[in-house]
């Protein structure tokens, strides 16, 4: 696709076994990014499987997956949704018309319409990352269920976790090549 070869490849790894669904990541993000009421950049999903009493529950903290093949980018008519530093997907508010093609194109429901008219979603906290910090959700998580870093750097948290644990992607059949991995 458009720009595939990044020297840095930012990704997030989410440990479904550590997560207790406390929503701290959601609140940390809201506070950090000034997310409006009814808006969201990350959210919690619980998935229960099996028949009582043999039930198993998986809790996930989900957000934009910063897909390598991002349909929101290819369907954006103005270039507002674009690939940026480290392969992340960002939105340029000055270019966004609020046509919502990207909202319809995203298989993960990662985008919402900001009351000011533009579309908004998780930015992987690039404003913090460029200053050397991690994302607000990673720093806020009390159970250390979230990790963020450069997949291309073998010593990063994300690379080591993916190396040592089994992981899965959501809806891989969509061909979006997401960069949010779930440890199972």
């Amino acid at each position: 696709m458009l720009f595939k070869n990044y020297r840095t490849r930012y990704a997030m790894v989410m440990d479904t076994r550590r997560c207790v669904g406390c929503q701290t990541c959601v609140l940390a993000c809201k506070a950090e990014n000034g997310v409006p009421v009814n808006g969201y950049r990350d959210w919690i999903v619980t998935e229960t499987k099996g028949e009582f009493p043999h039930l198993s529950m998986e809790i996930r903290s989900e957000r934009c997956m910063h897909c390598t093949n991002a349909p929101c980018v290819t369907n954006c008519p103005t270039g507002a949704s674009h690939f940026a530093k480290g392969g992340t997907v960002q939105i340029d508010r000055a270019l966004c018309t609020g046509c919502k093609a990207c909202v319809a194109a995203c298989p993960y429901g990662a985008r919402y319409v900001h009351p000011d008219g533009y579309v908004d979603k998780c930015s992987f906290c690039m404003h913090r990352v460029t200053k050397g910090a991690s994302t607000a959700c990673v720093e806020g998580c009390p159970t250390k269920a979230l990790a963020f870093g450069d997949l291309n750097d073998p010593s990063s948290d994300v690379a080591r976790l993916l190396h040592s644990r089994t992981s899965k992607l959501l809806s891989p059949e969509e061909g979006t090549e997401p960069n949010l991995y779930f440890l199972v």
Partner: peptide, 19 residues
């Protein structure tokens, strides 16, 4: 059985896309 509970409520997306 699989039951998914979503802690997100955004009018244009949940419970179904309505943009």
């Amino acid at each position: 059985m699989t039951e998914i509970e979503l802690f997100r409520n955004s009018a244009p997306i949940d419970p179904q896309l309505h943009v």
